[in-house]
Amino acid sequence: MVEERSETLDLLNDQPALVRVENLYIEFQNQTVLRDINFSIPHGQTLVIIGESGCGKTVLMKSIVGLIKPTAGRVLFDNKDISKLTQRELSLQRIRFGFVFQNAALFDSMTIGQNVAFPLKQHTDYSKSQVEELVLARLADVGLPRSVVYKKPAELSGGMRKRVGLARALMLNPELVVYDEPTTGLDPIMSDVISELIIRTRRQNPMTSIVVTHDMHTARKVGDRIMMVYPISRLEPDEPQIIYDGPPSEMDHCRDRRVRQFVNGEAGERLMEMRFSEAEGA
């Protein structure tokens, strides 16, 4: 199984890059969140970005789809610099993305049916019956019954909302699907359902995926490649912010202590830091 995964990764690495991030810097009010980030994602690969809370994973992902402008550097999607596109070009480019938000980000003034139909109504001229048919098909793909169509997002559980978010993101058959913390806040069974859906979606439609998570079970299960981002506040000025970039199978044997700590869920020196601050407070 592990060998099979490594072979797949080698094959995918030969593919041309769909996304290329070059010398990316992002700052908010003089606080640097991302520093000199460089990587590329070949067509068809599922890249999992892991890292502790506040390390800049979501910011990195939002900058890839053009929701956050880089302070310096550039993000290329299909060889086009995202930050240099006009509003209209960016809107057209975004039809090629699917974005699954952490809390689903469903429009709470609309029903589930209207939410899932939204991208079709905005960008296609399908008839009402065609839209209805496609909405029901997508909802069935993510395992939701047709009875949810007329419900409001507030009436659904967290897991169901995430599945609706996934159905909406896949509506226009995107080339790149970005998942922001897809399993956060879900029970282990529902987390596994979402992971299976990510795998199934990729199997059914050849697409490139980026999954941002700190759930190692999901990361190992869905990822062809894992990249670990480390918070800048804990790095020396000349240290790279990406501290691991490779297949999931090699993570356990990584020589970097910080990677092993994260994979095994060990607090390590953080406990000592907490004790120090407690002592200082006392």
């Binding site: 509003q87 809107s91 974005f99 938000f101 980000a105 469903l106 429009f107 709470d108 905005q122």
Partner: peptide
């Protein structure tokens, strides 16, 4: 706050 505006933008709507 609930990222609905980001969701709108991410779906190609202004």
């Amino acid at each position: 706050v609930t990222e609905q505006i980001d969701a709108l933008a991410s779906m190609g709507s202004n």
